[in-house]
């Protein structure tokens, strides 16, 4: 137990030193790159952030040929699984979408609780920097092809929070956006019409923004890192 405490103290000291050297270190002491003694007695270098997760960059994935891709696009358009992640005030417009009055299930829109099984991400309203970090993590975990619907004027130009110190102004600088739904707040009907627009785009084969993200990956990453100062995760969260 004492050796454990010693180790923790050592780690804390080191992070304090780092903090004084750089301006401020946001990586937790246990996630820092360091040397440890392995069970067999040898000294190895570890970097927990990249040891736990893959550091591979996303690749562009080419659509299949002709009819096959068209058929798959039809299936994708008729079965849109939405990640249940409300980022701002607009998330209150999403539950009514599933109620008898609007009933998005008719159009093949369903909510999923995990990013691994979702295809569409509704950014619902204003997005603070703190939430953006989680949004990026969730977005990158979604399997391609994936679509983003930006809900409300806050995602377009900042809306009424354009001068706030903690909310972003333009969503398309950080993740690619397929459909914008303007308004403050847009009603569920507007959201449904956004889904219809998204379906058209998918059926025409124009909703390939996941590939755009992979193509312009460095640019998007630079924008994200500019405002997320405490970047303590891998560059791409698989």
């Amino acid at each position: 137990m004492e050796t454990m405490n010693d180790k923790i103290n050592e780690m804390l000291q080191r992070s304090a030193q780092n903090a004084s050297q750089n301006e401020k270190s946001f990586i937790r002491p246990e996630d820092e790159e360091r040397e440890v003694i392995a069970p067999d007695g040898s000294t190895i270098k570890i970097n927990p952030i990249y040891d736990y997760f893959s550091g591979k960059k996303p690749q562009e994935e080419k659509p299949l040929n002709g009819v096959v891709e068209k058929f798959l696009n039809w299936a994708r358009a008729e079965s849109i699984w939405v990640l249940g992640f409300g980022t701002g005030c607009g998330s209150i417009e999403i539950p009514p979408l599933m109620t008898p009055r609007f009933d998005a299930y008719r159009f093949g829109v369903q909510m999923r609780a995990t990013p691994r099984q979702s295809n569409a991400f509704i950014i619902s309203g204003y997005l603070s920097v703190k939430t953006l970090k989680r949004v990026i993590r969730s977005y990158e975990q979604m399997p391609s092809p994936k679509y983003v619907l930006a809900l409300g004027s806050c995602t377009i130009n900042g809306g009424m929070y354009y001068d706030s110190y903690s909310t972003i102004n333009r969503l398309d600088k950080y993740i690619p956006v397929d459909v914008y739904i303007a308004g403050c707040m847009p009603r569920p009907e507007a959201l449904l019409s956004g889904f219809m627009k998204l379906k058209e785009l998918i059926k025409e084969g124009k909703a390939e923004k996941a590939n755009e993200y992979a193509r312009n990956f460095d640019e998007y990453k630079a924008n994200q890192k500019k405002i997320i100062k405490d970047w303590n995760m891998p560059d791409y969260n698989w």
Binding site: R76, W81, P100, Y105, N119, P143, P145
Partner: peptide, 29 residues
């Protein structure tokens, strides 16, 4: 379940589309 809740509900062929969609997904980890 949808009709019990007063909704129109999914089309009856939705599970097959979902299956096709899932097979058509490009990323597999």
């Amino acid at each position: 379940v949808a009709r019990l809740a007063g909704r129109h509900g999914i089309p009856f062929y939705q599970p097959w589309i979902d299956l096709l969609k899932n097979i058509g997904i490009r990323t597999t980890l």
